[in-house]
């Protein structure tokens, strides 16, 4: 049995990687991938917590979270397609007309 702390450390590292990815990249695709990493960390948390705590609901939550991640990815990707079609780029920093 892997200690729960290790799992938490693992997911935290995954989270940190995701955060790093979001911060360092300007490209929308990279960002959604990083977000997926974070969500996957959450899924891992759910799954391990479910098994560790003998809470079967955790597994259900994990699946739900996965589904939500898929939705988000889909919407995000479709918007990126729209963006690249209209602006010719998926660089999110490029859209910045409204500011101040």
């Amino acid at each position: 049995m892997i200690p729960f702390q290790d799992i938490l450390i693992l997911t935290s590292v995954l989270f940190a990687i995701g955060v790093y990815g979001i911060i360092s990249k300007r490209n929308g695709i990279y960002i959604i991938i990083s977000i997926e990493i974070i969500i996957n960390a959450a899924v891992i948390n759910f799954a391990f917590a479910a098994s560790f705590l003998n809470e079967i609901s955790g597994a259900v939550y994990a699946i739900l979270v996965l589904i939500m991640a898929v939705f988000e990815a889909v919407v995000f990707m479709s918007l990126m397609i729209e963006l690249s079609r209209k602006k010719g780029t998926v660089d999110i920093s490029k859209v910045g007309k409204f500011r101040g």
Binding site: I92, V95, K97, F98, R99
Partner: peptide
């Protein structure tokens, strides 16, 4: 200027 219009 803090609100620089960049979503990132």
């Amino acid at each position: 200027r803090i609100q620089n219009g960049d979503a990132l």
